[in-house]
Amino acid sequence: MKAIEVRGLTKRFGSLTAVEDVSFEVEEGEVLGLLGPNGSGKTTTIRMLVGLSRPSEGDARVLGFDLSSGIHKAKRGIGVVPDSSNLYEELSARDNLLFMAKLYGVPKGVREERTEELLRAFGLFERRNDRFGTFSRGMKRSLTIAAALVHDPKLLFLDEPTVGLDVVAARSLRDLISDLHHRGLTIVLTTHYLEEADRLCDRIVILVKGRVVAVDTPRELKRSAEEGSVIEATFRGATSDHSADLSARLPGSKVVVLDGTRLKILGGDPTRVLEELVGFSRSHDLGLEAVNSMRPSLEDAFVSITGLSPAVMAKEKGGR
């Protein structure tokens, strides 16, 4: 059975079209990643699917209920973790979970047990009586996820779950998401961290400027990028000021500036790329130090599909 079926979903805000004719499906038990830069329509798509925003056109079925007429019923089986940890600062961890359980109509006898179970599972039991406002960012994120699970949903939406977390907190959260997946929960995840999508998702929908540009498994997306070469070159001198020249020399390739002295060249004939790299290095006196041919990563697939730099995408959200 399909957990979600999206058909031609469109959202307009005045003259701005945030999401345009988006269609995809999510199988039960699947982790689907919505991948794209800021403004690509990921969050708007999720907001429509959880009933926070009405689509301008198109429709969707969520857990078998039409978005237009049955979202209220669907909400009983949906858990949502928004991109900000928006529980009540003045309530304790326990009271926040109990309040959410009451909103979802979790029976009185089950509420306390479920709350305690979640607090223990998320390592927050010792801090159960502390106010949410006193928690660290990682703890707030964990409790926000716990709150989304308090009514035992079948479908979980996670909007940028690891944004703003330190490396350790982000890793433990990814482990937790994997664990939820293994327990059979259907998960829709938005992220702009490519490695996160690669690790967690069964399939990925890539959105750019509100449109779906690719839907496939991470493996297939990477395979599609394998058709072209991926070459990484390291120079002694700084290359960023001259990358436009290299792009002009290699019209069939995409030049990505990795950092001051490293460039990645996607696509094109490898022999030609090597020749041009040598010529480029000489003409700008950059001192070519190393050239490596690589297997494409999801990041490379993303760049070749969207033409966007993943570094720019990460910067947009202050990412790692």
């Binding site: 926070l52 909400k75 928004p82 928006n86 709150a147």
Partner: peptide, 10 residues
């Protein structure tokens, strides 16, 4: 953002 959290409930 807590009002939005309320609206996520049925």
């Amino acid at each position: 953002g807590t009002l939005e959290r309320l609206l996520l409930a049925p």
